[in-house]
Design a protein around this nucleic acid. Structure first.
Lengths: 138, 138
DNA sequence: ATAATTGCAAATGCTTTGCTTGTGA
DNA sequence: TCACAAGCAAAGCATTTGCAATTAT
């Protein structure tokens, strides 16, 4: 718990000025279970501070993301989702029926991606891998 | 060349009614070199028929996509890009400096994706893999 | 003090839609 | 003929921005 202190610490470290609003957004981002979009985030935050503007939430997630404090994902929706910057890189599997997001890592795939890029004459600077699947029933 | 006949043939096959506008969109989609967004597509089409509405282009690419005639991609932009439905599946490497899109296939990665999904209890129904890279200078 | 941040509402950019007129099979 | 398609403008949605008031350092 108290993981929000983590985000606050990283803000100081990056000279990101802390305000009540930012502290609150950091706290909610830390405690939230999944990968919220801005609307969901704002809704949750509003339950604590009803005066906070959605524009502030937009500005703050952008700020945090640019500082590498949280990560932004664009799955197959017309909006972005966010998560605390993960310690270790991972990719996502999305349940096509429920929308549930599962994180995974696979080193073999990572290596192959790098190899593919190099073969094409490119240095791999980033990638996006999403698997879409439906649950296998027993 | 005359690849547009391909799209037209597939329209008939799927009982997609052909109109002058759809024929034109099919033709331009067939001849275009890269992965256009709707704005680019509409611009190109307008050079031939200036009366065509962008709403029609939106409706048509959606229709073609749902019929499996063309494919839609959402790279890291706030708009979608389209390409003729490829005969064989492939993924994309995007040049982060120029925006150039390079197609590639890698069977090993494909197999690993399937394996990963299964290990998580899912049947892989689709995936998205994009590599972002910068050109290696000699 | 003062440069940065907030809230609000208006603006933006892509995409969709309601409605009337036009058209392919 | 007549269900479906096109054109136009308006509406939708997520996101951004201008500006005046507020706040952190």
């Amino acid at each position: 718990m108290r993981e929000n202190f983590d985000i606050e610490a990283r803000c100081k470290q990056k000279s990101v000025r802390l305000t009540d609003q930012r502290r609150l957004i950091a706290k909610v981002m830390s405690e939230i279970e999944n990968h919220p979009d801005v609307g969901e985030l704002h809704k949750k935050i509003s339950e604590i501070d009803s005066k906070i503007s959605i524009a502030t939430v937009y500005r703050t997630v952008k700020l945090f993301e640019e500082a590498g404090i949280i990560a932004k994902h664009d799955f197959r929706e017309n909006k972005s989702r966010y998560e605390k910057a993960p310690d270790k890189h991972h990719d996502h599997l999305i349940d096509v029926n429920t929308g549930k997001i599962i994180e995974f890592t696979n080193n073999e795939i990572e290596k192959l991606q790098k190899k593919v890029a190099e073969k094409l004459g490119y240095k791999l600077v980033d990638h996006r891998l999403e698997l879409y699947g439906s649950k296998i029933k027993k």
